[in-house]
Design a protein around this nucleic acid. Sequence first.
RNA 1: CGGGGCGUAGCGUAGUCCGGCUAACGCACCUGCUUUGGGAGCAGGGGAUCGCAGGUUCGAAUCCUGCCGCCCCGACCA
Length: 475
Amino acid sequence: MAKGITKRAEDYSKWYIDVVQKAEMADHSPVKGCMIIRPTGYGIWEKIQQHLDRMFKETGHVNAYFPLLIPESFLKKEAEHVEGFAPECATVTHGGGKKLEEPLVIRPTSETIIWDAYRNWIGSYRDLPLLINQWANVCRWEMRTRLFLRTTEFLWQEGHTAHASHEEAEEETYKMVQVYKTFAEKFMAMPVLVGRKTEAEKFAGALHTYCIEGLMQDGKALQAGTSHHLGQNFAKAFDVQFQDKDEQRKYVHGSSWGVSTRLIGGMIMTHSDDNGLVVPPKLSPRPVVIVPIYRKDDEKELVLNKAREITASWDPLFFYLDDRDQYKPGKKFNEWELKGIPVRIEIGPRDVESGEVIVARRDTGEKVSMPMDGLLEKLEALLDDIQDNLFKIAKQRLEDNTHTVDSYDEYKARVKDGGFFRVFLDHANPKVEEQMQTDTKSTVRCIPFDAPEEEGPCMITGVLCKSRVIAAQSY
RNA sequence: CGGGGCGUAGCGUAGUCCGGCUAACGCACCUGCUUUGGGAGCAGGGGAUCGCAGGUUCGAAUCCUGCCGCCCCGACCA
């Protein structure tokens, strides 16, 4: 039905771009790789921020803001970190018409400038733990970009915490990846696997990295959030020490964790269809739209008055009364469908007469009649049902597309068709994963926390492995 | 950086091979009337230095040279 959206089956990548642009979520900017986030897209980001920010605060974190520009020398203080990020940094060399003495890097991530500040903030065990988050933009000069999934500049949050012990930092790292899992599943209706990254895939400068991984409709994996145990690496690089109860001076243990506007890409590729965007109710800035239907002025007045009467006690941010006179109802139906609004209410003279309204849900397209009496409660229940249904469908798809494979030949033949693959792989040896990547363009997405105890030979080398890992092609 | 594609009105395109009237069409936009339960109809109207710079020619969107930009596929990555 939708005009101008390429079908998923025809060209998934084209479909994705079409949905983003036709739903007015984002535009390409005049600068290559950057994007303009339009109100439809930004409204979803605001909902993501709202829910996550609350979850961060509920787990004891506070927000702060650190500067965009970082002295270039800071990035070089942690050996692995500089290696990982140097190639993708944008650098400011001139300011005020003069060449700067030291170039400034536009933050690709803020560990260095934050740990530099932590040195001054932390002196005693009484100053710990330090639990700070910031909402910010960062810049990474990627070679190939895609709206929301990978842009040169993107929005994210980054948590940076400091602890007295390895155990506490580990607890924090694990806790936050679980927060991400809960958020992904409960609010985004996007099922994810939770686990640890391999050496090859972990964050540059971390002891280890935990992650959530989603599976998109085309069978490719999407890394949707990461939480890093930094150990004492940044504390040592920036000399952040504290005096402990035992009077010893010790280096602080750190964690950092983040999710980005990439989540919006994940939401699109998890739920949307050939008719456009599908937004889970909990991420919708206004989950209900009311489209009035009328012919003459007297009907218009009748219908709009009734609509206003019904919604008088509703939260203004729960719904949008689309009383734009310049568009016909059919046009509005399609516009809201394209933009993925979860529920649409149609109200016309016939409905005012009967005391009922037509309610259409975006996920199934189903239309039902509902009495105006007690409508709000019914809508809330319906929105919950849509949220659950979207999760259930996505969960089923993830399960249906998770395969257990033992032979490398079978893996090579099947991995290109998409899905998660449970395989034995000697991931302790980076060369093995490298070979798999060369052969198949796939990588280990994670070593799941909940992998059942199972032993078997690595599908490439035959070395005995103690559990299966999840491998897939990814974005 | 390698492979492919493309730059003509806000968007999507035709015209380019084979140079020639005032650069055409659809959508969008503006005005008026009729319409309004799944993207309205009719009539009228506005909007382009044909990506940029040179060159060839009486004449260039079209031919030649150089440059720039964008998109898609790969390598890199959240």
